[in-house]
Simulated scan of single mutants.
Amino acid sequence: MKNIKLIGGLLLIITAFTFISCENEPIDSAINLDDFDGGGTGGPMVFKADFGGNTWNGTVAQAVISGNLVSIGANRADGSTFSILISGNTTGTYPANSNIIAYTPAGSEYGYWSVNLANESELTGSIVISNINTVNKTISGTFSYKGYWSDSTNTSILPVDFTNGVFTNVPYTSSNPVANDTFFAKIDGIEFVEEQIDGALITNVSGMPDQISVVGSKNNGDRVGLNIIRSLAAGTYQFTGPLGENVNASCVLNNVLYNAESGSLTITAKTDTRIKGTFTMVVKNFTTSVTKTVTEGAFDVEYN
């Protein structure tokens, strides 16, 4: 079944790559955000978009920049949300279909997102990052896209055009890798050689429980990511699909997303700021049904 559930302003299939960090540090030692400080000024936060003859205005918005990834989330009191995930961390234009924009109506677990599951190469729109202000810690830009209902088994819901999307002065936080963090995994028997390790705490996101995010990533965008409910004690927990109750995981390999379908994660040690464990899993792409086997997974990271 080709469908994606969108809950609480987060794309749960990619929450392993969507962090809210407690740190406000430089993104990467190889990146100087001052180089693309586009002259933006302080001012009120705006997140809005037009569709269906109306303008949606977000009341709360937050962004996170981590490694080569920007995530932006916005919601309002009725429970509807927008989520944007960009594989990149500089000003510029990004195609919507190879990144993510998603609108989730209030009370729905599905939404309108920027990929046509029947034709994933369709150019559905774009996201423009116009300014990253490192003084005020804000990000600004625009977006527009043709949104397809994420449950493709429901063919009665037609696509919706989202236009005049604007995010202005959205506050961002950034994560910085810790020198003594470790991460290891093999994918189909070949070592995944990460170039960055990120641990972060996701707190108070639309009523969801606090979560710990652990990600090993390469500069080309390949990633292995884990999401762990923060309240879990040492022990073994099963992966049960993209919406698992206790743990979730996903991989991005050659720009293809895979979600954990089965396997387990064992927490061997945990403090208020650090978590250590092991994992094995089978991950699956929801469009092609291609699977990958992840073995010998191990991590030891600071997350607070």
Rank of each mutant, 00 (worst) to 15 (best):
M1T: 13
N3Q: 15
I4P: 04
I4W: 13
I7F: 04
L10G: 01
L12T: 14
T15E: 14
T15F: 09
A16G: 15
A16F: 11
F19V: 14
F19D: 02
S21V: 02
C22F: 06
E23F: 02
S29W: 13
L33N: 14
L33M: 12
D34V: 13
D35K: 15
G42A: 13
P44A: 02
F47N: 07
F47T: 07
K48F: 03
G53A: 03
G58K: 02
G58I: 04
V60E: 06
A61E: 03
Q62K: 13
A63L: 03
N68H: 07
L69Q: 06
V70C: 03
I72P: 01
I72K: 00
S80G: 01
T81Y: 10
S83L: 09
L85E: 05
I86A: 10
T90K: 10
T90P: 06
T90S: 11
T91L: 02
T93I: 15
Y94N: 04
N99H: 04
I100G: 09
I101M: 15
A102F: 11
T104C: 02
A106V: 11
E109P: 04
Y110A: 14
Y110R: 14
Y112H: 12
Y112N: 10
W113P: 00
W113Y: 15
V115M: 12
L117Q: 06
A118E: 13
E120M: 15
E122Q: 15
L123T: 09
T124Y: 05
G125S: 09
I127H: 01
I129D: 07
S130K: 13
N131H: 07
N131Y: 10
F143I: 01
S144R: 03
Y145S: 02
Y145L: 11
S150F: 00
D151C: 06
D151T: 06
T153E: 06
T153D: 05
T155F: 05
T155G: 13
S156L: 03
L158H: 01
L158I: 14
V160A: 05
G165E: 03
P171H: 02
S174R: 00
S175A: 13
N176E: 02
P177K: 11
N180L: 01
N180Q: 11
N180W: 00
T182V: 05
A185M: 08
I187V: 07
F192P: 00
Q196C: 02
I202H: 05
V214W: 04
V214K: 01
V215S: 11
G216C: 03
N220L: 07
V224A: 12
G225L: 02
L226S: 12
L226Y: 00
I228H: 08
I229S: 06
S231A: 09
S231T: 14
S231P: 10
A233V: 09
G235F: 09
T236E: 09
T240K: 07
G241L: 06
P242S: 08
G244F: 11
E245F: 08
V247L: 13
N248L: 15
V252I: 14
L253T: 09
N255W: 02
Y258F: 10
A260E: 10
A260M: 03
E261P: 00
G263M: 04
G263L: 15
L265S: 12
I267T: 10
K270T: 07
T271M: 05
T273D: 00
R274G: 04
I275H: 01
T280A: 15
T280M: 08
T280L: 01
F286L: 08
T287L: 06
K292W: 00
K292V: 00
K292R: 13
T295E: 12
G297I: 07
A298S: 05
F299W: 00
D300Y: 04
V301K: 07
